[in-house]
Write a protein that binds this DNA or RNA. Structure first.
Length: 290
DNA sequence: CACCAGGGCGCAT
DNA sequence: ATGCGCCATGGT
């Protein structure tokens, strides 16, 4: 626990996180679509838990769970046992000034350990959508099929639905989530899961490459979605999803990717991908405001 | 191996 | 009001 020590304890307590950790940047990084801004903090749903977390000092965060819950659920979720500062330190300015700058601006981004089933459905839904639209569609699916929960403070929220819950939706109910042509992919994935054809335990034990091959056997899952599930759901940190922004930066800066040093950053190419994604997606806005 | 359709929303114009 | 583009994929 080199990057975290507790400062107090109660149902609400404050933890100190000394490693790279920036809630705003993680929330904006396109890996989680259900975080909700609440006052000066965030409400974060994960499986059957809801965490409220807010920054109360340079490295201090107030959380509304017990210490045991933080250690068993949220510390793994935030991947706090790993040093992202050390990963960032692998980037040398002279080798790659663009990635160096991206990582400087993206300091604080981490790769969350999210639920693989949720990631599969979420990234199937994500195709050809922008981030606000993904948020809306995912929330609609949760409201239509997920279990309703009430947090300790009375906040009502919906769990991400299981395969059974999604499969049991009528065509009309699923259509009401406005997933467009993706609804058939979502239904197919739920039915495949019910037939026992998706075993995330087995997938996470496979090599990253074999894992991608297996995921792509699912209807509606191509290389991009497979990489996202692998990175954000199975925590294969070398997975490198290529969305339009990454293809753009590879094309414009790295000669179509030929000059990008994948070998130098293995097995953390996925972390670098997050820095580049964030950097390039916000490039225009940054240039206008500066 | 190239297109191309298919939904719907965010966002700039 | 209107068109363009979005963390793609399957079909032809």
């Amino acid at each position: 626990m080199y990057n975290m020590k507790k400062v107090g304890m109660r149902g609400v307590f404050v933890i100190r996180i000394e490693d790279d950790f920036d809630l705003e940047k993680i929330a904006d990084s396109g890996q989680c679509f259900r975080w909700q801004r609440d006052g000066d903090g965030f409400r974060i749903p994960f499986r059957d838990s809801l965490l409220f977390i807010r920054k109360v000092g340079p490295q201090d965060y107030e959380v509304d769970c017990t210490e045991e819950e933080f250690d068993s659920i949220w510390r793994p979720y935030f991947d706090l046992v790993r040093s992202y500062r050390a990963i960032r330190g692998k980037i040398k300015k002279k080798d790659d000034p663009v990635l160096f700058e991206a990582a400087k601006l993206g300091q604080g981004i981490r790769i969350l350990k999210q639920d693989p089933w949720e990631m599969l459905i979420t990234f199937i839904i994500s195709q050809r959508k922008n981030i606000p639209a993904i948020r809306q569609a995912v929330e609609a699916v949760c409201r239509a099929a997920g279990k309703k929960k009430t947090a300790k403070d009375g906040t009502e929220w919906y769990m991400f639905p299981s395969a059974e819950e999604i499969a049991s939706l009528s065509d009309e109910a699923l259509a009401s989530c406005r997933l467009g042509y993706r609804d058939k992919y979502v239904r197919a994935a739920a039915e495949a899961a019910l037939r026992g054809e998706i075993d995330f335990q087995k997938l996470s034990a496979l090599s990253h490459e074999d894992c991608l091959v297996e995921l792509q056997k699912l209807y509606g899952v191509g290389i991009k979605v497979a990489q996202c599930v692998s990175l954000f759901g199975l925590h294969h940190l070398d997975a490198f999803p290529r969305d339009v922004w990454i293809l753009r930066v590879l094309d414009e800066v790295y000669d179509g990717g030929k000059n990008y040093r994948f070998d130098a950053y293995a097995p953390y190419n996925g972390v670098m991908q997050q820095y580049l994604f964030e950097y390039y997606r916000n490039k225009d806005a940054r240039e206008v405001s500066v």
